[in-house]
């Protein structure tokens, strides 16, 4: 039964909150039960930002992830140190290897290293590294479709940012390809 609990974490400004929202939004569009819970407070500015996302077939009980994440999308080094322990055994750990040189310390996880910043730069927009990571995550889990994510992104972006839709979709597909092998 589908009951995904994913942590998205990185620096403020890397777009980790956005990819968490996209997973939730797309899940809702696919008639799943969803929740998105951010960390909040002064540490959000410049420091680490993270959110907990749930996508489930059943109503969400606790929206809080406590050492039972099915996956973690990790965009910077402090977040690796903070959240590696919160993934359940056998869960997926997606690491942005462009910014994180260290390897995962646990051997009971499925770990993926994705050079998200390099891949984003190849697309001509370094700011879509978060979407590269999200693309990889979607390819691995199939929690929601890229199409639903794009629908959600369109709602969140609104008309003002509509011109950014193609590069974001390219980033999703590039991230997916990176883990497809």
């Amino acid at each position: 039964m589908l009951n995904e609990r994913v942590i998205c974490a990185g620096f403020g400004g890397q777009g980790v909150m956005l990819i968490g929202q996209l997973i939730s939004y797309a899940g809702m569009l696919e008639n799943r039960e969803v929740s998105w819970l951010p960390s909040y407070g002064p540490e959000m500015r410049g420091g680490t930002a993270n959110c907990s996302v749930m996508v489930s077939e059943k109503p969400i009980g606790s929206p809080v992830i406590t050492d039972d994440a099915t996956a973690a999308i990790i965009m910077n080094l402090p977040s690796l140190a903070k959240f590696e322990k919160d993934v359940e055994p056998g869960g997926r750990l997606l690491i942005n290897s462009s910014l994180i040189e260290k390897k995962a310390t646990r051997d009971d996880l499925q770990v993926y290293y994705i050079p998200a910043n390099e891949l984003a730069v190849e697309l001509g927009n370094s700011r879509v590294s978060n979407m590269v990571m999200l693309g990889a995550y979607l390819e691995l889990t199939k929690i929601v479709s890229i199409e639903s994510v794009m629908k959600a992104l369109k709602k969140i972006f609104g008309p003002a940012k509509e011109h950014l839709m193609p590069v974001n979709e390219d980033a999703l597909r590039k991230g997916a390809a990176a883990v497809r092998q």
Binding site: Q21, S24, M28, E33, V34, S35, W36, L37, P38, Y40, I60, P63, V64
Partner: peptide
């Protein structure tokens, strides 16, 4: 609680 304020849900 703070979570009800900050959480996003449908």
């Amino acid at each position: 609680d703070g979570m009800i304020g900050q959480i996003m849900e449908p």
